[in-house]
Computed example of a mutant assay.
Amino acid sequence: MSTIDERSTNWPRIARDGVWDNNVVMAQSLALCPLLAVTGTATNGLGLGLASTFVMVASGLLVSVLRGSITPQVRIPVFVLIIATLVTLVDLGMNAWMHDLHKVLGLFIPLIVTNCAILGRAESFASRQAPLPAVFDGLMMGVGFTLVLVALGAVREALGSGTLFANASMLLGQSLSWLEVTLITDYRGFLLMILPPGGFIAMGFLLAGKRMLDRRLAARREAKAAGVPASA
């Protein structure tokens, strides 16, 4: 498999692809099941996002390092085995050290194995790149996925419960319990936003917002290329 020269790697492009242009959720529409299921709070979204990011980074590194030893005929089963091993380690680690959060996320931690974005990046990027670009790509893809999880969780939690980062101490420790904010005291809650239908609604607004912003940015680039003032 061919590789690229790390000195010529377009690092800003990799970062922009992972966080924005080729975002796992906003552009590829992958991992929607866990996204909508666990983002009842921003804390849950952050926990799943960090776990997924670790798997993306570690799988990218291992696939890149082992790419010369993996024959094309068995590459997909080997990639799945690598990802499944890493997810098992994450699952056991969270069960041991973050048991309360592990109980909340439940089945969706093992289901990281089925996240097509992780296998897709292993196949399309890590298996063709040197280790450092592969790790950076996994990190940026994970960061982009985590940002969407946290944003969606924050919106649903704020509207549904009137809080933000509830029970953050389960994930981040007591030292960062100050992140737990009550936005509206004596708030009775908006049940729809906590339920899956609320996740679909909030996700629709996020997607619409991204597409509107993309169109505006594209129009500005076209106007700039044509020499037209930005305000026109």
Rank of each mutant, 00 (worst) to 15 (best):
L179T: 02
I14F: 04
V150P: 08
A58D: 10
L132N: 06
A37Q: 10
A218H: 10
G173H: 05
V78T: 00
A166K: 09
F200H: 00
I118N: 07
S64T: 09
V181A: 02
G40H: 04
P72V: 06
V143Y: 02
F79N: 11
R221W: 10
L139C: 01
M56S: 11
M212G: 15
L171G: 01
T88E: 12
L147N: 06
A15S: 12
N22F: 13
F165Q: 00
N115L: 08
V113I: 12
A134D: 05
D137T: 03
A134W: 01
L30M: 05
K103F: 14
N95P: 14
A168W: 04
L172Y: 01
R221P: 05
V135Y: 07
G199P: 02
L30W: 11
A15N: 05
L139F: 08
G160C: 03
T114L: 15
G18A: 05
G68Y: 07
P72A: 02
G45Q: 00
A223K: 08
S169H: 15
I83S: 01
A218C: 06
F205P: 14
G209Y: 07
L164W: 10
A31Q: 15
G49K: 04
S69H: 12
G106D: 00
A166P: 11
M212S: 14
V148R: 01
F200M: 07
L62P: 03
V19T: 07
R13C: 14
V57H: 09
G198Y: 00
D17W: 14
S231W: 11
L159G: 08
L152W: 12
E6Q: 00
S124W: 01
F125R: 11
G47V: 08
L183M: 02
L48I: 13
T9P: 11
G68E: 08
M1V: 15
K224L: 13
A27E: 06
V65I: 06
I184K: 07
L89N: 12
Q28P: 14
E222N: 15
A27S: 02
